[in-house]
Each structure stands twice: as structure tokens, then as C-alpha cells.
Amino acid sequence: MSVTAVASGVSEPATRAEKVELAVELLAHLEREELALPEAMDRIETVTTNPALTREILDTAEKRGVIERENARLRIRRGGTYVEYDSQVVTREGEFECKRCGAGITTGHFVRFEAGELGPFGSSCIRKVTGRDAE
């Protein structure tokens, strides 16, 4: 996988295909059975804010059976796959900006997926992004 490094040492998906894979994997690991489209968009925006890419992510997730779309809601069809906090979430100290809320943070939480790493997030945003905490 080609990944572009940024000054903080955090890696970001470099290609459109890598972003799609990372976002689909995030949707597959949400700890919620169902969410409203705006809640799903909140998660996808941690990977991209490009509307065309967002549509591609949702279409790909639906084609793969990760989600079902009905009206303005998504039903997650993951088969019991959640983010394992002990093994998939790592923390790093440094100067970061949360990918979800934009706040400055000194401890970044990163989620490791097969498709790549997503983050940094603050301690409360990591729980919201993964669906561990309700909005």
C-alpha cells in the first residue's frame, strides 16, 4: 500500500482506492446496528469530505454487503466485527489535530485496519467514530 507521510509522522491514504477501502472497513467495524445518514457521514468525513468519493464509499459498502441503505438510514451488516480496542487502537503522544472535531490534542488515538490507519482522534472522538459511544 502506498501511503503518504505527513510532518507529524501520521500516515494518510494516498489514493482514492485506499480511501474507499479504509472508509468501507470503518463502516464494517461500527459498533452500531443502524445509524442515520448524517451519523454515517460524520464517520466517512474522517477519511474524505469529497462528495463524489463519499458516494463511491457508500456504493462500495452496499455492493459488498457491509451496509444496507433505506431512506436516510444505514443498517450495518458486519457479522459481529468490531474494533478491538486492545489491539487495533494505538495512542501516540505529540501535537495533533483530531480528524473528527478539529481540536488540538497531545494524545492521538489511531485505529489500525487492514486497509490502513485512521486518525488521530481525541479520546472521546475515537469512541464516537467507532460507534462505541452514541452521539
Rank of each mutant, 00 (worst) to 15 (best):
T4V: 11
A5L: 10
V6A: 03
S8D: 15
S11K: 14
K19V: 08
E21Q: 13
E25W: 06
L26Q: 02
H29T: 09
L30A: 01
E31L: 08
R32L: 12
R32P: 04
E33Y: 12
E33P: 09
E34R: 13
E34T: 13
E34M: 09
A36W: 01
L37F: 02
A40C: 05
D42A: 01
E45Q: 08
T46F: 03
N50M: 01
P51C: 04
P51A: 09
P51G: 09
A52Y: 13
R55E: 15
E56N: 07
I57E: 07
L58A: 07
D59I: 02
T60K: 15
A61Y: 03
R64V: 03
E70H: 10
E70C: 00
N71C: 07
A72N: 15
I76Q: 08
R77H: 14
G79S: 14
G79R: 05
G79T: 14
G80S: 05
Y82D: 14
S87C: 04
Q88E: 14
Q88A: 12
G94Y: 01
E97Y: 11
E97W: 11
R100M: 11
C101W: 06
C101N: 02
G102S: 07
T106M: 12
T107K: 06
V111F: 01
L118P: 02
G119S: 07
F121C: 05
K128R: 08
V129E: 04
D133Q: 05
